[in-house]
Design a protein around this nucleic acid. Structure first.
Lengths: 212, 212
DNA sequence: TAGATTGTTAATCGATTAACAATC
DNA sequence: TAGATTGTTAATCGATTAACAATC
């Protein structure tokens, strides 16, 4: 709230990290923490911690530090994790299945309400408590259920047609695991990309150029 | 080579992206490209393209631009993708399986030579052409086979003990999908982390704070 | 009160963009 | 040669760090 005049992406991408560390401290029963100590644990600087947090409000108290549980809740709220955004998952292959089963969407601001797949052999199975539906039923499902976001676990060459169908249904938030550039086609879409192969190439670079 | 005095991480993390776009152009039969055009396609600035590439050498030609196939090969080499680093995968759950089956390691500088799993029911199965071995066999395997890197698809709480065993065998390069902080324990390890839940939280933030 | 630690402003550092001379 | 486009230096912009007055 309040001080919200466009937070930089650098800060935003650090928020989940703060949230993780604070959750852990909270679980350990730590009640308060100073920016200096938190920075130590997170391998950052105290300045950065204070600057980052102050983008969103003055959560600390001079001479005391920050209340771990309160700060955790604040960041949880800032991230929007107390939402229950309705999401559908497209592509129930190994990857989609892995994500559907392993991520705790409820703690991440989402609720997985549907799953769609082209492979007829998989249709009818369940992923956790979610029925795998035929990809053809996507439109009907989206008409009958409010859908906020789509998680795309489909091959690059299939993304465009699926994306067009989803966008036409009004879905504009995407978690994308392919190398298809969604933002180029729909500039107003909110897209987070996961590029595993880019990440692995970076590992390769760093192994190859270790002395740097 | 030559100009290699510590390239910034910002540049390094853009290299896989250059590589992807150049590979695509190359496949399309495009022979040459200017920094201006490449920047257009990649949604960057021509300045950045030229600055980035010049960290590694003068690959272009004034008045002409860059040879797509040559530049692609140069970056491939800079990234070290022509290596065949021997990698083992630990944890053949949904995630590990998905990655083992879907990523084309040969094009990414790696060769997957082994796979280990605690679940006895999975031991003996194959992932593609890789046998799933019992996690107990890890040491023996590493003694008999040169291993450059480990891909860790195991739960956070199991990472430390497995990591200790791997590090003791001399493996110091890790692709890590958990939230365990490998670098904190072994500062000389090369680690690339994939934090899917952080990424999803960022999507959540952006959905929640769209007006920013 | 004295000590600790924040919130915030100022200084530094690094990364991106602009400009242009060099040159194919 | 003239036109195009690089490689590279200089200018700008943004992000990180340092410093310190405010204050619990």
């Amino acid at each position: 709230m309040s001080k919200n005049d466009s937070i930089s992406m650098s800060v935003i991408r650090r928020l989940p990290r703060y949230y993780r560390f604070l959750s852990e401290l909270d679980e350990q029963g730590v009640e308060r923490i100073s920016s200096t100590r938190l920075a130590e644990i997170m391998r950052a600087t105290a300045s950065q911690v204070r600057q980052d947090l102050n983008c969103f409000g003055g959560f600390g108290q001079q001479g005391y530090g920050y209340s771990v549980s309160q700060l955790r809740r604040e960041i949880q709220h800032i991230l929007g994790l107390d939402n229950q955004y309705k999401a559908i998952l497209i592509g129930a292959g190994n990857f989609g299945t892995a994500v559907a089963l392993h991520l705790n969407f409820g703690n991440l601001g989402f609720e997985l309400i549907g799953c769609f797949e082209t492979d007829k052999n998989k249709v009818g199975e369940t992923l956790g408590n979610i029925l795998v539906r035929s990809e053809e039923e996507m439109e009907r499902f989206c008409e009958n259920n409010h859908v906020d976001a789509a998680f795309l676990f489909i091959p690059r060459q299939n993304v465009e047609s699926t994306l067009d169908r989803l966008y036409r249904m009004g879905i504009k938030n995407y978690w994308n695991f392919s190398h298809y550039d969604i933002t180029a086609r729909y500039p107003d879409a909110v897209v987070e990309n996961v590029h595993l192969s880019d990440n692995l190439m970076t590992l390769c670079y760093r192994m190859t150029n270790k002395s740097d």
